[in-house]
């Protein structure tokens, strides 16, 4: 790959009890591109994504080994503050989970906990990131409303704004459009294409068409293993592995 590598995963293994979730993952994710992780449900895509910002720590019976280098720091074996590390990555989950507070505070949350509390500064940042997520015009008159009052599509954009507000380098997205209607999905997709100017985006999906539309790089996973990886044109137009070919033909899901 000619692009600069942002995330480099070496021999990553992850298991819960005796069950192996991820097997010998080796992967390079390029900077400022959209890398799509494709694969049928239950193949470990989400787990891979979560191990990137060490949300795997939440599950005490999960065992992780290997290296994940982000900007040449091995995040699995680092002394760096885990909260700082997580702030480098914005996370979008399958369904939006707005924090139980109003719209404004959802976006300001990350800023406040990292110690930036001046109201005028926060006002500006909140507006900036809501605009960035194309949500500002819809919510500017009701910033004090609870975030749960928004539609699902709006909530997902709010979660995007909230994630962007902590100024990450990387956006991790776990099937971010799976709960959304087609119009909201398209809005998110378009946004991602725009955002890759500034951010490294890693997106998990099982929607093949979506991957074709926006992916620069594609990683195909099956049963915890990486079957094939490469640029979108390599993988989609000229897959090397039989399994990839079959998956692209839609013969299994």
């Amino acid at each position: 790959m000619e692009d600069r590598t942002k995330i480099k995963i070496k021999d990553l293994n992850l298991s819960i009890g005796k069950q192996k979730i991820l097997k010998d993952i080796n992967l390079e994710i390029p900077e400022k591109k959209i890398t799509v992780i494709l694969g049928p449900s239950g193949c470990g895509k989400t787990t891979l994504l979560k191990s990137l910002n060490r949300l795997t720590d939440l599950y005490p019976d999960m065992r992780v080994s290997g290296n994940i280098m982000i900007d040449n720091v091995d995040i699995l074996h680092t002394n760096e503050d885990i909260t700082l590390l997580r702030q480098k990555m914005g996370l979008l989950s399958q369904r939006p989970y707005p924090l139980p507070m109003n719209i404004y505070n959802n976006v300001a949350f990350g800023l406040r906990i990292s110690g930036r509390k001046k109201k005028r500064y926060l006002d500006k940042r909140v507006e900036h990131y809501l605009k960035m997520a194309n949500l500002w015009d819809e919510v500017k008159d009701r910033l004090k409303d609870p975030a749960s009052a928004l539609s699902i599509g709006q909530q997902q954009r709010l979660c995007l704004a909230r994630g962007l507000a902590v100024d990450p380098d990387i956006i991790l997205a776990d099937e971010p459009t799976s709960a959304l209607d087609p119009i909201s999905s398209e809005a998110i997709e378009k946004k991602f294409v725009e955002l890759k100017q500034q951010y490294t985006i890693v997106m998990v999906t099982h929607v093949l068409r979506q991957a074709r539309r926006i992916a620069d790089y594609v990683v195909f996973m099956y049963l915890g293993e990486i079957i094939e990886q490469g640029t979108a044109s390599e993988v989609f137009d000229n897959p090397k592995q039989d399994m990839t070919k079959q998956y692209l033909k839609g013969s299994f899901n």
């Binding site: 939440l58 909260t83 997580r86 702030q87």
Partner: peptide, 15 residues
């Protein structure tokens, strides 16, 4: 309480 809510907050850098 959904795990995802916890994850969302942690991923924003909250302790």
């Amino acid at each position: 309480l959904p795990d995802e809510l916890k994850e969302a907050s942690l991923s924003l850098g909250a302790t």
